[in-house]
């Protein structure tokens, strides 16, 4: 197995074009596990940690571009205010050591239904930036996931960044695991209020073959808030609305029974998480006061 280190993005893209079967590596938190378990044996590793174009985040016109090599630890410490949902999700990743190495870019590359960042990216309508020697394109994250651990990235493409609009309203992320740290999600849910466009975003993790949105729940809640005039005149969210939102989120899930949990538990827990998180976001929106997290 070769080990190649790219010094620049051009260098990395040229290598990926020549050797599409090579595995890019940043934090290696998924990849090295797969290699250690002998699940995959790529012909080589392409180390991206020295590529300057991937190493930072920047903001332009209210949109934040997070380079694929930015570790979770920096998202938590530097972007908590701009991207609270993604920061909360980042905080649930593994342990401090792994958050220092692991990246959202890597999370996307694995494209696991249980990737912690994905629900928050979905709720924020993030876009994935993909690059190759052929050029650069941006894809809505909901279109990026195509199957269990499969994505729309072409063999010669590298994930170079994600783009997210700076939060205009409260966001929440919650994840159920069987222990209080270092755990793959049994299920996860993220919700974001977008008052600038009177929309609601959601994201479900470990709930279907791919991370997915609960579109009906989003439209239901946004519709209720709009029809009741609550975006501009926030009042307590009616219990019926919260309940219905939870039901629609649970209904959007297509979970399976597996070693981490039953489908029945996942559907139940997603409903609970949806009700609670929407309550917290609305509480914050209507009072201006952030709770916990």
């Amino acid at each position: 197995m070769d080990f190649l280190r790219a010094a620049s993005l051009d260098d990395a893209l040229a290598t990926k074009a020549q050797r599409p079967d090579i595995a890019p590596i940043a934090g290696g938190t998924d990849l090295m596990v797969a290699i250690n378990f002998d699940h995959i044996r790529p012909s080589g590793l392409l180390d991206l940690t020295s590529v300057p174009e991937l190493a930072d985040w920047s903001e332009s016109g209210g949109v934040i571009r997070i380079g694929a090599g930015v570790p979770y630890a920096r998202i938590i410490s530097e972007l908590g205010e701009h991207l609270p949902g993604l920061a909360m999700a980042s905080r649930t990743v593994a342990s401090p050591q792994i958050r220092n190495r692991g990246t959202v870019g890597g999370n996307l590359a694995t494209a696991s239904p249980s990737g912690d960042a994905h629900p928050a990216l979905l709720a924020c309508a993030a876009e994935v930036e993909l690059a190759s020697v052929r050029g650069t394109r941006r894809l809505p994250v909901a279109e990026f996931f195509t199957g269990v651990k499969r994505s729309a990235a072409e063999p010669d493409e590298l994930i170079t960044a994600v783009h997210l609009a700076r939060a205009t309203g409260p966001q929440q992320f919650a994840k159920v695991g069987t222990r209080n740290a270092m755990v793959i999600s049994v299920c996860a849910f993220s919700v974001a209020l977008h008052p600038d466009r009177a929309e609601v975003g959601t994201g479900l993790g470990s709930a279907a073959p791919t991370p997915r949105r609960a579109v009906e729940a989003e439209e239901f809640l946004a519709g209720e808030l709009t029809s009741r005039g609550m975006w501009t005149d926030p009042r307590p969210l009616p219990e019926t609305v919260v309940t219905r939102f939870g039901e629609l989120v649970a209904a959007a899930a297509a979970p399976i029974d597996d070693v981490r949990g039953t489908a029945s538990y996942r559907r139940h827990a997603l409903g609970v998480l949806a009700r609670r998180t929407v309550g917290w976001t609305w509480d914050e929106y209507s009072t201006g006061r952030q709770t916990c997290a």
Binding site: M88, R91, T92, Q172, F173, A174, K175, V176, G177, N180, A181, V183, L273, R276, W280, T291, C292, A293
Partner: peptide
Amino acid sequence: AEPDIRDLPGGAANTTHGE
């Protein structure tokens, strides 16, 4: 009191604020 979620079931995974 405003809870510290790390002291609650679920911890930093933010599953409850005391509910």
